[in-house]
């Protein structure tokens, strides 16, 4: 629509036509940007799916890597390794995160509560590679070698603020009357927190854990200093262990086409896991909130 057209059709002062034109143009640009912002996600997912699907097979999930050039070989060790390392992270981050969230929620307006919430936000902004160095200094150096334990520790530190924040957000949504009712019935505070508030906020806890796992399962940077990698199945958590993201990184920067292909297939496994978990967490929260009628 040209400026002239607007003026003649609507018979309004010309500056209004110009303003309307600017309005239309700018609003169209924001709409176009919104469409453009979705393109990278679609492109990445589509490409990973297309490239990765070419080499996927049942043995890919169970075999250990074979030397370059030899047919077959898989990422069974990395799948098990990722599960173990992420499992260690959950064992540390989930209880601490939930407990800290209850404290932060109970003391939201007190100085220590504010300091803790601020620390949580700051912690979530520290680059994951720094967490890798931290775990290296605290676990790997005293231990003397790389280990799954140190990897789990690094991921736990990354996961902690995620679990804490989502749990606390959901605790904030629990109606006050529920807590007051429990206290009025004579329940001690700890019972109120653990048996009334926490179950009511359980969807937040579950969402937090799912989002946390989806975040840390894809972290390759801290693994360089901690779990490192291992071409075989390993169950000893004091020893180095392969993980999916670290495997992708090592394969992708190698000079072999064979390993590049495996990197794509591994990326497909990882992205299905990570995005699936992330999406499930969001849908679950939305469904829960709607069901409870809190939002």
């Amino acid at each position: 629509m040209s400026e002239r057209e607007i003026i003649s059709v609507r018979a309004v002062p010309s500056h209004l036509g110009r303003r309307r034109l600017v309005n239309t143009i700018m609003l169209t640009i924001t709409g176009a940007l919104a469409v453009a912002a979705v393109i990278p996600l679609v492109w990445i997912v589509a490409h990973v799916a297309a490239e990765g699907a070419r080499f996927i097979s049942p043995t890919f999930f169970t075999d250990v890597p074979k030397p370059v050039g030899i047919e077959g070989g898989g990422i069974g060790n990395a799948i098990v390794g990722s599960a173990i390392v992420v499992g260690i992270a959950c064992l540390i981050a989930v209880p601490v995160g939930i407990a800290a969230a209850i404290y932060s929620h109970d003391n939201a307006t007190r100085p220590l509560g504010i300091v803790i919430r601020f620390s949580t936000d700051v912690l979530s902004g520290i680059p994951s590679i720094i967490m890798g160095i931290f775990a290296y200094a605290v676990v790997v150096v005293p231990q003397g070698h790389f280990s799954a334990l140190s990897g789990g520790f690094a991921l736990a530190v990354i996961m902690l603020p995620i679990v804490l924040r989502t749990t606390e957000e959901m605790l904030n949504l629990v109606p006050r009357s529920l807590r007051e009712g429990a206290l009025a019935l004579g329940a001690p505070r700890w019972r109120t927190s653990l048996r009334v508030l926490l179950p009511a906020a359980m969807s937040g806890v579950v969402t937090g854990i799912m989002l946390g796992i989806s975040r840390v399962a894809g972290e390759a940077a801290p693994m360089i200093f901690t779990a490192f990698g291992n071409p075989f199945y390993a169950a000893d958590v004091t020893q180095p262990m392969a993980t999916l993201p670290h495997t992708i990184f090592v394969y992708a920067i190698s000079p072999y086409k064979d390993l590049h292909d495996k990197a794509w297939t591994t990326a497909l496994v990882l992205i299905v896991l990570v995005l699936g978990l992330n999406l499930a967490a969001r849908l679950f929260t939305r469904w829960r909130l709607k069901k409870m009628g809190w939002k």
């Binding site: 912002a37 979705v38 990278p40 996600l41 492109w43 990445i44 490409h47 990973v48 989806s214 975040r215 399962a217 894809g218 972290e219 390759a220 940077a221 993201p245 992708i248 990184f249 992708a252 990197a263 794509w264 990326a267 990882l270 992205i271 990570v274 995005l275 992330n278 999406l279």
Partner: peptide
């Protein structure tokens, strides 16, 4: 969701 794509997958792509 774009923020949830692992860094290493961004790198590969």
């Amino acid at each position: 969701l774009l923020a949830a794509v692992p860094s290493v997958v961004f790198g590969l792509w």
